[in-house]
Design a protein around this nucleic acid. Structure first.
Lengths: 211, 211, 211, 211
DNA sequence: GATGAATGAGTATTCATTCAT
DNA sequence: TATGAATGAATACTCATTCAT
């Protein structure tokens, strides 16, 4: 009976997937410490011991969630890394890719936000940031000095902040924004704001002459 | 016996202060969930039950810490709120006040960062952000439209992010910055970067004509 | 109301004592691994968390039990260590002290027996054995060589075994002994057996001349 | 296909044997309670469920290990039981057989040592001791009284203790012995010590006249 | 103001064991 | 014969909190 087989296969696959999905949601929502394996098990509709069977430990489960986001993030930016065109075009594309990924993975912002404070997670976050930093440094090299207030590294912090902060502070901004700051229209507006900031900044750098 | 009374008063103050100081340090460093009252008591060098006597509960103790930062923050920005001069001057002063407060209260950034994800803390953070938002909206009113990508609210998110993100991501940036990103020299460099961003942005807005 | 005070005092003292007593009995009966803190708590009639409050941890509780026996043991042998008389008299007195202590602390033999296999307990047992070894070596020095089959260290193993083994194997010997091997009469018989062994051995050593 | 069959047979044997070997080593080293089936499986390099398939249960696996030692022990003493010669010769041979078996099965001493405290194992240990006890009682019958301090049963406890205790306490004696108490030279020395004790004791009993 | 004892629910993790395949 | 998933009870230990003194 292939049907039975398929069902069982689905069940097996589903168990591990259900656990990861539950862990993802809970960790992102409440943070590592505030979530217990009991919570994850309840949320996934499985038994507590089964979470350990599949994930090994709470820390390992958390790392799996982080790792999944890391891969998704890198993949999301991959095309933007390699795309050509003018500097402004390339910057715009990178920002669009970043914004789209964040909008598609709203929990991710919250996760990272919280974990920035936990040194154990730093290596993973650094690994995550490194390619983007390298890319921005290379892209801005013709226009920016190696050091000082206009060095590329400052623009890296500035522009990643322009994107990330919108998402992390979104729940707090709901009262300032009329309507949902995560709606398609609001996100599009933010996208154009960041593009404007990029264009303005690039124009100023170009006017000032090469770094 | 005033002498005894005074001593007792000092002891009282000292005990409560020691507890708050310990709570401050631990909550900021490890987050609410990762800190136990036992930890706070040990760190303060007092008995566990005394923490409850003075603070009431763990949640109340945490709120006291948050509230203290809230007041310190408002006080730190108070002069900048009222200062006069050109728009650029006023923006610079506000940014300087913000940066200085953050540099003086490095733990605060970490605290807020973590708590942004916890809905219970949202009211306090919103209360904290409100005056600054109002101020920026008023300050930029002559130059920015009420809605759209160049509305003041976007610049609020953008510039508070320019400041805050530098602090929250600092421990991750250590490898990119050569040397400590929290050193006086590094902070001064960041200050000048943000000033440049403000000046550039204001110039562009002015060139484009009133919102 | 002194009565109430006394009762409360007793209760406080009793709690720690009840826990130690329960731990003593259970650890000796079933061994470290087979006893859970839950068991100890139930046996002492207190709550599980209270065991940790008073003892710190399972390992610490176990060490407290061991340590108590160690002190009792040393105290039990103290007089015999210092007593004078002929070599035979001193050996007899030591054996009597040892046998009496073991008979009064039947659980102790079982405890040590089991723990001999656990390296973590070795230091404590070695500390326990050291004074007796030193004493026997000094006492037999005039009669035994420093090395070889008749060295004092062999007699230490032999005579401590003569005493200890009787107790550790007692529950297995019940069928061979008619009646209880732990009865006063049976113990007195064993005492005389060990004395006879000592006398026989000393006579042989003396006949053979100084080591 | 006999070849395949044979291979399968070998694999079967190997799997069961690997499990028993792993169980043997772990149980002897750490005791019943401290060893999990997971440990055994890992140590044997097989799957956890396979251990249950082959052994039935943890208790059954443990009994298999004990039973194997029981058989090996009886077999090791078998020749000594039946050998002829003078009483001293027969005693020496028995002691040699015992010592050799213990030296060849060092883990066994540790196992028995621990299990003496567990009533469930008593029947097996008693079954193990019975033939030796009967043999010693018969051998010493001409020289010893039926009861009292010089009854054969005391010499049974005494001489089995002389042998066994050396092995069980060996890890604790390492510091007293210079060098390894389990080295061939050290074991030979102990053998001669026990022989001397036997000879001395027999001579004294003979001098005293028949029991 | 301060303390030590007590509590009951919670934590992550491991257990021996079963079972469908 | 072998396996991977699943289970429910148990493990040592910590938690915030209370309370009598």
């Amino acid at each position: 009976m292939p049907k039975t087989l398929k069902l069982q296969d689905n069940n097996k696959l589903e168990t591990a997937a259900k656990i990861r999905a539950a862990a993802d949601e809970l960790f992102c929502h409440h943070g590592y410490d505030a979530v217990s394996i009991q919570d994850v098990a309840r949320h996934a509709g499985v038994q507590k011991a089964l979470v350990f069977y599949h994930a090994g430990s709470k820390a390992a489960l958390f790392e799996q969630v982080l790792e999944a986001y890391y891969h998704a993030h890198q993949q999301a930016l991959a095309t933007a890394y390699e795309a050509g065109g003018t500097l402004a075009e390339r910057m715009h594309r990178m920002i669009d890719a970043y914004l789209t990924f964040m909008a598609d993975n709203l929990r991710y912002a919250a996760l990272i936000q919280r974990q920035v404070g936990s040194p154990e997670t730093h290596p993973l976050i650094q690994r995550n940031m490194a390619p983007l930093f390298t890319w921005i440094e290379a892209a801005l090299a013709p226009l920016t000095p190696k050091t000082g207030p206009l060095a590329a590294r400052h623009f890296f912090v500035t522009f990643s902040g322009l994107v990330i902060n919108y998402f992390t502070y979104a729940p707090l901004l709901a009262s300032l924004w009329q309507g949902d700051p995560m709606s398609a229209a609001a996100l599009e507006e933010r996208r154009r704001h960041v593009h404007w900031m990029v264009d303005t900044m690039l124009a100023a750098l170009e006017a000032a002459g090469p770094g």
